[in-house]
Amino acid sequence: MTGFIHHLVEQYGLVAVFAGCVAEGESAAILGGFFAHQHVFVTWQAWLAAFFGAFVGDTFFFVLGYSFADHPRVVRLRRRPGFNHAYQLVRSHPNLFVLSNRYIYGMRLVGGIASGLSGISVIRFAALNAISSAIWAALFTAIGYVFGLGAERFVGRALVHHERLLIALGIGAVIALAAFLVAHHVAGRERKREES
């Protein structure tokens, strides 16, 4: 079974990295870097998949705010914790906000919509988003690559396919749990701030 799963990762792994980075993404980029170190992916291809996933995801949220501001789903998303704070930040510091939004965990969706509503031009947003996505993809694929070095030292050079997969899944599970806890904490703080 693990051989079959590993085969799927080898065949479709970069698509999974791209899709994971379109969503929230850090764990997908880290796993891309990990598998690049294990020679399942080529390093620059893992970076490129993470970059395009990050760029497409943020652009999608921007377009929602820019073109569909009155759609009921977008109106509902604008009620999420942190939206008002994100909107104030993007209005006062648009360049800095677009460059840094994806690094503030849990703010990517509302930050993208706030950017779309703020009046930033599409070209300006795309240029800033490309810079931010390129740096973000390099950072998190590098973290995954370093995890690969550590795993190799810990387990030994003779990592076989199923060990690689299990280590990668373990890394992904730890990152997902940490991300959930951070997001839960940030959302709670934002709710308290908006209530006061």
Rank of each mutant, 00 (worst) to 15 (best):
D70T: 11
D70A: 10
H71V: 01
P72D: 04
V74I: 12
V74K: 00
V75Q: 14
V75R: 15
R76L: 12
R78H: 10
R79C: 14
R80P: 03
P81V: 04
P81S: 11
G82N: 10
G82R: 08
F83W: 09
N84K: 14
N84I: 12
Y87G: 01
Q88K: 10
L89H: 09
L89K: 11
V90A: 02
S92C: 09
H93N: 08
H93A: 07
P94F: 04
P94N: 03
L96M: 08
V98Y: 04
L99W: 05
L99V: 05
S100M: 14
S100V: 12
N101G: 07
N101R: 10
N101D: 10
I104L: 15
G106L: 03
M107H: 04
R108T: 03
L109G: 11
L109W: 04
L109C: 13
V110E: 05
G111Y: 07
G112S: 04
G112T: 02
I113L: 01
S115G: 11
S115K: 06
G116F: 06
G116R: 04
L117C: 09
S118L: 02
S118R: 00
G119N: 06
G119S: 07
G119H: 01
I120N: 00
I120D: 03
S121N: 02
V122S: 08
F125S: 02
A126Y: 00
A126L: 12
A130G: 12
S132H: 02
S132L: 01
S132D: 05
S132V: 01
S133D: 01
S133C: 08
S133I: 03
S133H: 05
A134T: 02
A134E: 01
A134M: 09
I135Q: 02
W136G: 00
A138Q: 13
L139N: 04
F140Y: 12
T141L: 03
A142R: 10
A142G: 13
A142L: 13
A142S: 15
I143Q: 09
I143N: 00
I143P: 03
I143C: 14
G144E: 06
F147Y: 11
F147E: 03
F147P: 04
G150W: 12
A151E: 02
A151S: 08
E152W: 08
R153G: 09
F154M: 11
F154V: 11
F154E: 03
F154G: 08
V155W: 09
G156E: 10
G156K: 09
G156A: 05
R157A: 15
L159Q: 12
V160I: 14
H161A: 15
H161I: 14
E163Q: 15
L165F: 11
I167E: 03
A168H: 02
A168T: 02
A168G: 15
G170D: 01
I171C: 08
I171V: 07
I171G: 07
V174T: 11
V174L: 14
I175Q: 01
A176W: 07
A176P: 04
A176K: 05
A178W: 03
F180G: 06
F180D: 07
L181S: 10
V182G: 05
V182Y: 08
A183D: 13
A183M: 14
H184I: 06
H184M: 13
H185G: 10
V186N: 10
V186R: 13
V186W: 08
A187F: 11
G188H: 11
E190P: 13
E190L: 15
E190Y: 15
E190M: 15
R191K: 15
